[in-house]
């Protein structure tokens, strides 16, 4: 996965617990946990909007793109 979710970093910066965020934006703690670990297929704009509002941040603070590193074999061939 080349999209890295930095929600946990943002939560730590804002000193907000996952449980409180989940309650504030209307999703389950399990969903917050999945989002933090990047194990979701997508995020709704509506959810993103609520997270940004609650944590006072930009979408770019929550996720970033990191190109996949080429393996040694891939470079040779």
């Amino acid at each position: 996965m080349t999209i890295i979710v930095d929600l946990d970093v943002m939560l730590a910066r804002r000193k907000v617990r996952s449980k409180d965020l989940a309650a504030a934006i209307g999703i389950t703690e399990q969903q917050v946990s999945l989002l933090k670990s990047g194990k979701v297929k997508g995020v709704r704009f509506e959810t993103l909007d609520k997270i940004c509002l609650h944590l006072d941040c930009q979408p770019g603070d929550l996720m970033r793109y990191e190109p996949e590193k080429q393996t040694e074999d891939a470079r040779v061939f």
């Binding site: 989940a22 309650a23 209307g26 999703i27 389950t28 703690e29 969903q31």
Partner: peptide
């Protein structure tokens, strides 16, 4: 109170 997403159900 946390509400589950309607789609998750």
């Amino acid at each position: 109170m946390a509400q589950p997403s309607p789609h998750s159900s």
